[in-house]
Simulated scan of single mutants.
Amino acid sequence: MRRFVLILLLLLIVPIAVSAGKYWLGDRSVDWQSADRSSAGLLPLAAQHPDALVRVFAARTVRWRGIFAVHSWIVVKPANASRYTRYDYTAWGAPIRVNGFVADGRWFGDEPQLIAAADGEAAAVMIPKIEAAVKGYRLAAYGDYRAWPGPNSNTFVAAVLAAVPELRTTLPPTAIGKDYPWDNDWIAWTPSGTGVRATLGGYLGLTLGWIEGLELNVLGAVIGVDLRRPAIKLPGLGRIGVSAA
């Protein structure tokens, strides 16, 4: 038992220490007020892309919190629409923000990572479900946002993804808050619908699913393994292996 506890502590502490080192060496320690929030060029011009489109992005959060976590968001565009619609959940104002930022914009200097994508008819079927999930999200009142253990931006995106399990995706292990029980169910299906998650208010949890893999959540820090698209999942450092997208 002592050996198991020691290994668990090392898997929690060492990756976070490495991520902290990258931050303090200047990798992500930028001034948030002057940080770049322009397009990262990950999306085509909407007017030149007639097909329906769905994208899920994530990028490191602002300042020191980026050591531990990413901020995630969803972008949709119905067929023949002239612009993208971006959905975020933030700590200021009304939590759900629509088009508050550039659709594929850098998140205060950090370039977004593509988490999931759908195009054409598949995306067209998903978009009404996504819009309904955003509209019906129950934690949308002023003051509902809580950075840790949730509900935060990743809780919101995980809840919306649960409405479109056909997207067959999961948020990265650094998406702290994704395991917060937005539906008040401590035991429930995973957002992909391919497994089960159990959580104690987001502080402690276990997830097992074909898309999600095996994940242990300890105070928001996730350790896990993905067999479907081989990778290990570590706190701070995220996914190491084959991309999940």
Score class of each variant (00 low, 15 high):
1 M>G: 01
3 R>N: 05
3 R>C: 03
6 L>V: 14
7 I>S: 11
13 I>K: 07
15 P>L: 01
17 A>H: 11
18 V>K: 14
19 S>D: 08
20 A>H: 14
22 K>P: 01
23 Y>D: 05
25 L>F: 12
25 L>D: 10
26 G>W: 06
27 D>V: 09
29 S>P: 03
31 D>M: 10
33 Q>N: 03
33 Q>R: 07
35 A>K: 09
35 A>G: 04
36 D>A: 00
39 S>G: 13
41 G>W: 11
41 G>H: 08
43 L>A: 04
46 A>K: 09
46 A>W: 11
47 A>K: 04
48 Q>E: 12
50 P>A: 08
55 R>V: 07
55 R>W: 14
56 V>E: 01
56 V>F: 02
57 F>N: 00
58 A>C: 05
58 A>H: 05
58 A>L: 01
59 A>F: 10
69 A>P: 04
70 V>C: 07
71 H>M: 15
72 S>M: 09
75 V>E: 00
76 V>E: 10
77 K>H: 03
79 A>I: 10
81 A>M: 00
82 S>C: 14
82 S>H: 15
84 Y>M: 03
84 Y>V: 07
85 T>P: 02
92 W>R: 07
93 G>Q: 11
95 P>Q: 11
96 I>S: 00
97 R>C: 10
98 V>R: 08
99 N>D: 13
101 F>M: 13
103 A>P: 06
107 W>I: 07
110 D>W: 03
113 Q>T: 09
113 Q>P: 00
114 L>Q: 12
114 L>R: 14
115 I>K: 14
117 A>N: 04
123 A>C: 04
124 A>F: 13
124 A>C: 15
126 M>A: 06
126 M>Q: 04
128 P>D: 03
129 K>D: 10
135 K>A: 00
139 L>R: 01
139 L>C: 03
139 L>K: 13
142 Y>M: 01
142 Y>G: 09
143 G>E: 07
144 D>M: 15
148 W>N: 15
149 P>T: 07
149 P>Q: 03
150 G>R: 00
152 N>A: 12
152 N>F: 15
152 N>K: 13
157 V>K: 03
158 A>F: 12
159 A>C: 06
161 L>S: 00
161 L>F: 09
163 A>V: 11
165 P>N: 05
166 E>M: 10
168 R>V: 09
168 R>T: 15
170 T>H: 08
171 L>W: 06
173 P>A: 10
175 A>Y: 02
177 G>S: 12
178 K>C: 13
180 Y>T: 13
181 P>T: 02
183 D>I: 14
184 N>Q: 04
185 D>P: 12
186 W>F: 10
189 W>R: 06
190 T>P: 05
190 T>G: 02
193 G>P: 12
193 G>Q: 14
194 T>S: 09
195 G>A: 07
196 V>N: 12
198 A>F: 01
204 L>S: 04
205 G>L: 06
205 G>C: 11
205 G>F: 08
208 L>A: 14
210 W>S: 04
217 N>V: 01
218 V>T: 01
220 G>Q: 08
220 G>M: 12
222 V>W: 04
224 G>K: 06
225 V>E: 15
225 V>L: 13
230 P>Q: 10
231 A>Y: 00
231 A>W: 03
232 I>G: 08
234 L>S: 05
234 L>E: 09
234 L>M: 15
235 P>G: 01
237 L>Q: 11
237 L>V: 06
239 R>A: 04
239 R>V: 01
241 G>L: 03
242 V>Q: 15
242 V>C: 15
243 S>E: 14
244 A>Q: 12
244 A>H: 05
